[in-house]
Amino acid sequence: MSSFIEFKHIHFKYQQGEDWALKDVSFHIEDNEWVAIIGHNGSGKSTIAKLMNGLLFPQEGEIRVQDLVVNEETIWDVRKKVGMVFQNPDNQFVGTTVVDDVAFGLENHGIPREEMITRIDNSLRAVNMEDYYNHEPHRLSGGQKQRVAIASVLAVAPELVIFDEATAMLDPKGRATIMETVQQVRETKNVSIVTITHDLNEVTFADRVIVMNEGKVWFEGTPREVFKQHEELQKIGLDTPFVTQVSRVLESKGINLVKEPINHKELMDELWTLYSIK
């Protein structure tokens, strides 16, 4: 019962007569846990995000956020607990300036003005955007807009933040700053994080990974366990990181790596222990 959010046998379709977008999906996310959900386009991963804060409702099954069952009556409370950052930086920027945008969510939740000011300050500082108070969105880069979106969500002090392909439309620099920001948030605040992505390098930061395929949970495990499924992942259209690919070849040539390396450093260290002891 300690799970923060729980999906119980969820079935969902967008329209009657269509195929199920989600088929019997069950999983849970703990307090302060970072879960990555991956899958190629159309695997149902974004649908999950929208179900989590009541933007959509399942036809079958039950979603629970702490002690709340997500339904029409509870959505406003659920949305206080579950914040969401979307893919398109432009289409979620409501305010005419940075500070207005962060204020928007706070205004919606009826936070008094004095408290708003401190919350805006803190959350903009948390994403390193404190120098951009009065900037207009069209003068910001995509990455900066996404950081403002994160600040807007953090200001409301949610217990879970969902990143629904929040880096997909950014350049590498923007992507890197967003991933840094997420890690920073994770270290400094008491929040669970769900990142929905098809960038496998982003997955390595998560505690746990849920791999979606054709509307079903296809695999669940640590990043290391997921990357061990190298060949299977490629079959369902997901690319594994370079390090995983190299490790596979090395192993096939008789170099036995003890644990599955998930980044360059780990691979180098593995090789080091193997070849410097001799």
Partner: peptide, 8 residues
Amino acid sequence: GKEVAEAF
């Protein structure tokens, strides 16, 4: 990968 393995 093959070249790396051989080198090692």
